[in-house]
Nucleic acid binder design. Structure first.
Lengths: 128, 128
DNA sequence: TTAGGTGCAAAACCTTTGCACACAG
DNA sequence: CTGTGTGCAAAGGTTTTGCACCTAA
């Protein structure tokens, strides 16, 4: 795992993610790829996604339903999402005020090495 | 499920949670109870926790590791947590400004029925 | 050539559910 | 009594892993 090779499988996962507007689960991605005729395995989708997250090309978040959701992310600066509970469509939202708040709140309680999880779930206009 | 009965099992779960300073998983709670000689079943721990969450006596959050974590919570108003990544110790934090921000941001993008997930992870003073 | 990647199936993991029995109200 | 709660085991779901084969570099 020292060097990352480029394989058509990982490229397929990248492409499938890029085609999505919102967050998708590994299984959804796998289903879609198979539906398009790909012979990629589920395990490979999981492994590719882990690699892409590691490379900073994808975002991962844990849905309340216990799945891990992924999304293509070219920009590598820190940001948050507003996600539709129905269709998964995600809007990237700037959160400068919240960033500040989180840092201050953590500092105030003596916590260091701070990371936060801020995601907003709702129903988008299209799904309502 | 119309009326909630009080059983020694649920009381045991309540007590075990109250003894914790941070978030714990259902399985941890079960292990501890069995270690203390209780004969409570794992399924019952899960069911009790679900009930306690429903009653507003416990908070639940999804850890990045795919587990659901629970914590005793007497106050029933909405709030968020600052959680130590090492020991699990959690501090309750007021988040009025962030609440407002989340609502506004969602509305601005046409999302309704908004729920948010805001949790801050860090290393607490004791663990550093 | 050779170390990393892949597919498949099995395993691991957390959580929920079906069922018969127990017991709180 | 009655119907909710319980324990156990089995099933359900997602994710990981073992292994033999494949392939990019």
């Amino acid at each position: 795992m020292v060097v990352k090779r480029n394989t058509w499988q990982r490229e397929a996962v990248r492409a499938a993610m890029a085609a999505e507007t919102g967050f998708v689960s590994a299984q959804q991605l796998h289903d879609r790829l198979r539906a398009e005729g790909s012979t990629i395995g589920l395990a490979t989708v999981y492994r590719s996604l882990a690699t892409l997250v590691e490379l900073g090309e994808a975002d991962m978040l844990n849905s309340p339903e216990g799945e891990n959701l992924f999304r293509f992310c070219s920009t590598d600066h820190h940001h948050h999402h507003l996600i539709c509970r129905k269709c998964g469509a995600a809007v990237e939202i700037a959160a400068a005020p919240v960033e500040r708040w989180a840092q201050e709140e953590a500092k105030r309680h003596g916590y260091s090495d701070v990371k936060h999880v801020i995601d907003i779930f709702g129903i988008c206009a299209k799904c309502r």
